[in-house]
Amino acid sequence: MRRLFPPSAEDTGTAGLSPFEDRAWDLDELADAYAYPARPEQAGAGGGWLRANMVSSLDGAAYHDGRSRALSSDADMRIFGVLRGLADAVVVGAGTVRAEGYRPARAREAFAARRAALGQPPTPVIAVVSARLDLDFDRPLFTEALVPTILVTGAQAPADRLAAARAVGAEVVVAGEGARVDPARVVAALAGRGLTRLLTEGGPRLLGQFVAAGVLDELCLALAPLVTAGDAARIANGPGLAVPDRFSLTSVVEEEGFLFARYSRDRLG
């Protein structure tokens, strides 16, 4: 893995990493490179910092044959694990939970000290955004989680599904009036529970809703050296913005042709 941007180690706070040097990075170096803002509760919209982690083919596909794993790599999975290791909560749409067979996050010794120092539980919470709660509550995501899985839903979610979720220990967070989830309220609703370092892994529809609501603070984008054609969705799919939202490039690293770019919005100015 080699860092392409910024060229100065001092600019990244990763002293000792020479620009363009191609070598293995350990998990601590990756964790430092992808650290959240020191005070995420003050930096982002709604009281938290919402980071997205997505992979795309060169021709813009967010997945192949229905799953994003086909576009991934070993380096992508290492970064995926680091981003999870830093987060308070992983925010994901119900469709992605079903398509990707989501399981609970696992505790990793490599992040235990960091998480303990920040007062985080051993693993991030998985927060599933779903209006209808059309989920299988017998799956390990709900029955084997070290910390209770959260369901983010509307105030009028189906009563029978709410009862089924609570019966397996899932917690419910309301972020919307009526039967729908308001994406603009998801960050604030989770931050209100002390979950300020947020990571969304999609899917494209959920990310599109966050973009449209103006609550996305950061995008970590893995660009795979693959072309797929087909009709797969882009990484953010949904209603377009009247005016494109501008993000600034923070860093780029490369491994085996994969580019791992990080973009952020300055909300402090």
Rank of each mutant, 00 (worst) to 15 (best):
A9T: 03
S68C: 15
D74H: 06
G192F: 02
A9W: 08
F142T: 01
G93V: 04
G169M: 09
V227A: 10
G13C: 12
I79P: 01
L249P: 14
V172G: 10
A70R: 15
S57I: 07
A52I: 07
L216I: 14
Q42S: 14
V97M: 00
L259M: 04
W49Q: 05
A179E: 08
T250M: 11
A70H: 15
A233W: 04
E218N: 14
C220T: 06
R103H: 11
P37Q: 00
Q42Y: 07
A213H: 10
S18G: 00
S248K: 13
F260Q: 02
R98V: 03
S8L: 13
F142I: 04
D26M: 04
F20A: 12
E29K: 01
L151Q: 14
A107E: 06
R67C: 10
T196H: 11
V82K: 05
R106S: 02
F80E: 04
V147C: 08
P7N: 03
A213P: 09
R51E: 07
P124C: 10
R193M: 02
F111C: 03
R3F: 13
R103A: 12
W49I: 06
G44M: 08
T12V: 14
L71R: 05
I79S: 01
G176H: 02
A52Q: 06
P244K: 12
R234Y: 01
A164Y: 00
A127H: 11
Y63R: 10
D11Q: 09
I126R: 00
A35M: 07
R267C: 04
A75W: 08
A167S: 15
R98T: 02
R103W: 03
S73A: 12
L241D: 09
Q120S: 08
R108E: 08
L83S: 11
Y263N: 15
V92F: 03
S72P: 05
V55R: 07
A159C: 12
D266F: 01
P6I: 10
F210D: 07
P204L: 09
L221C: 12
F20Q: 06
P6E: 09
L223I: 13
A261N: 07
A145G: 02
G119H: 13
A242Y: 00
A110H: 03
A43H: 09
R3K: 14
L58M: 15
D28I: 06
V129K: 01
R39K: 15
I235S: 05
A184R: 15
V187M: 08
G44C: 12
A165G: 15
V92N: 01
Y63T: 11
S56T: 15
E255Q: 07
L146I: 05
G48N: 02
G192H: 03
D74T: 06
T196I: 04
E201D: 13
I235Q: 01
A87P: 00
A45G: 07
S248F: 10
V97T: 00
V211T: 11
R23V: 12
G257V: 09
A184W: 11
D74F: 01
S264C: 11
G192R: 02
G95R: 10
L199I: 03
R115C: 06
R132P: 04
L195W: 13
A155H: 04
A52C: 13
A164M: 00
R78W: 02
G81V: 01
E256M: 06
Q156E: 14
R132G: 10
V128Q: 03
P148F: 01
V82L: 09
C220A: 09
Y34V: 00
A116Q: 05
E100W: 09
I235N: 02
G192C: 03
G85P: 00
P6R: 11
S248N: 13
R161S: 03
P148Y: 01
A89T: 11
